[in-house]
Simulated scan of single mutants.
Amino acid sequence: MKIISILPWADWLALVCFFSIWIGYAFFAKAWAKTRPSLLRTTNRYRRYWMEQAIARDPRMLDGIITQNLSTTPAFFSSTSILIVGALFALLGTTDKATELMSEIPFAQATTLIVFEFKILVLVAIFVYSFFRFSWSMRQYTFVALVIGSMPPPEDFASGQFERVAYVDRAASLVASAAETMNDGLRAYYFSFALLGWFVSPLAMVIATAVVAAILYSREFRSEVLHILKD
């Protein structure tokens, strides 16, 4: 309750705006992708193509290698998130020096020690969230490897002993879910940079959050990579 009275209303409004834009964009991107091509939706099509090829291959060593390579990215960001959280907690022990350094930056708003610590804790919460998303994505890729490893030989699909479409749908959905979960973690990283503007001023954070949302929109719905993949 103490932080509620200490933190200025401008900071509370900026924080509410920050999370509103973040959560709002996540819902917008998912809903918009149902009617418009998005990077995730387009790459999901290629993930299905991959699984259609995987059930026709024997042995499936190539698919195992691809799955392992895909899982290295969330594994890297998961371990990086732990390091960042540790560094932020270490920063909490030197907040007095950090506040002095921030006060020397032009246009930076003067803040009390407890408010500065609260801002760091919000950053910690964001990277903890990203850690859970990346680690869950990494685990989902192990499920993908499990499904690929359990696929029957191609001749069993050809004979009708196993349903081809069911296996493809299951494997493609798992890969898409792992990719979407990793995308959530990456989005948290993007918005964590916007939160750094809060150390300057509440207005700087709001502007930075809007800029990050615009960058994410351009990359997910209007990027050159999307144009290449959807053709």
Results as ranks from 00 to 15, higher is better:
residue 202 P to Q: 05
residue 9 W to F: 12
residue 58 D to F: 14
residue 207 I to V: 15
residue 206 V to E: 07
residue 60 R to L: 08
residue 69 N to Y: 13
residue 189 Y to I: 03
residue 74 P to L: 07
residue 8 P to R: 09
residue 206 V to L: 06
residue 185 G to Q: 03
residue 186 L to F: 14
residue 34 K to N: 10
residue 73 T to I: 09
residue 212 V to P: 02
residue 142 T to Q: 11
residue 210 A to Y: 00
residue 140 Q to G: 15
residue 171 A to P: 07
residue 38 S to R: 09
residue 115 V to F: 09
residue 63 D to W: 04
residue 75 A to V: 12
residue 74 P to R: 04
residue 159 S to F: 11
residue 226 L to A: 05
residue 229 L to S: 04
residue 40 L to E: 04
residue 165 V to K: 15
residue 49 Y to F: 15
residue 77 F to L: 11
residue 51 M to P: 09
residue 84 I to L: 15
residue 138 M to K: 11
residue 36 R to V: 10
residue 31 A to Y: 05
residue 140 Q to A: 11
residue 81 S to N: 08
residue 90 A to E: 02
residue 209 T to W: 05
residue 191 F to E: 00
residue 166 A to G: 09
residue 80 T to N: 12
residue 83 L to I: 15
residue 196 L to S: 07
residue 188 A to H: 01
residue 210 A to C: 12
residue 17 C to H: 14
residue 22 W to Y: 14
residue 32 W to D: 12
residue 38 S to C: 06
residue 97 K to I: 09
residue 7 L to F: 14
residue 187 R to G: 08
residue 212 V to K: 01
residue 156 D to S: 14
residue 40 L to R: 02
residue 92 L to I: 08
residue 41 R to I: 11
residue 20 S to T: 07
residue 109 Q to V: 15
residue 104 E to T: 13
residue 127 F to P: 02
residue 65 I to Q: 12
residue 57 R to I: 05
residue 91 L to A: 15
residue 87 A to P: 03
residue 186 L to P: 03
residue 106 P to V: 14
residue 17 C to D: 01
residue 128 V to F: 10
residue 132 F to V: 04
residue 135 S to K: 11
residue 37 P to N: 03
residue 1 M to F: 13
residue 135 S to V: 15
residue 192 S to M: 01
residue 220 E to I: 13
residue 198 W to N: 05
residue 131 F to C: 06
residue 129 Y to V: 08
residue 65 I to P: 10
residue 134 F to R: 06
residue 137 S to T: 04
residue 191 F to T: 00
residue 129 Y to W: 11
residue 11 D to P: 07
residue 96 D to P: 01
residue 107 F to T: 15
residue 28 F to E: 00
residue 34 K to M: 08
residue 162 F to T: 00
residue 216 L to R: 00
residue 14 A to M: 05
residue 129 Y to P: 03
residue 97 K to S: 11
residue 75 A to T: 14
residue 199 F to C: 11
residue 221 F to Q: 02
residue 52 E to A: 06
residue 160 G to H: 02
residue 162 F to K: 00
residue 73 T to D: 06
residue 210 A to K: 02
residue 87 A to M: 10
residue 204 A to G: 05
residue 168 V to Y: 00
residue 171 A to C: 07
residue 83 L to R: 02
residue 107 F to P: 04
residue 207 I to R: 10
residue 228 I to W: 10
residue 222 R to Y: 06
residue 197 G to Y: 07
residue 136 W to A: 14
residue 181 T to W: 05
residue 175 V to H: 06
residue 187 R to D: 10
residue 119 K to I: 06
residue 10 A to I: 09
residue 63 D to H: 07
residue 226 L to C: 11
residue 194 A to N: 01
residue 137 S to N: 02
residue 111 T to A: 15
residue 145 A to C: 03
residue 164 R to Y: 08
residue 46 Y to T: 03
residue 92 L to M: 05
residue 94 T to R: 11
residue 37 P to I: 12
residue 14 A to D: 00
residue 163 E to M: 07
residue 205 M to T: 02
residue 106 P to H: 08
residue 166 A to M: 02
residue 170 R to G: 01
residue 65 I to D: 06
residue 229 L to T: 05
residue 135 S to H: 15
residue 97 K to F: 09
residue 147 V to W: 08
residue 183 N to L: 09
residue 70 L to A: 13
residue 2 K to W: 04
residue 204 A to C: 15
residue 108 A to N: 15
residue 86 G to D: 03
residue 62 L to Y: 14
residue 61 M to D: 13
residue 146 L to S: 15
residue 37 P to G: 05
residue 64 G to R: 03
residue 142 T to Y: 12
residue 66 I to A: 14
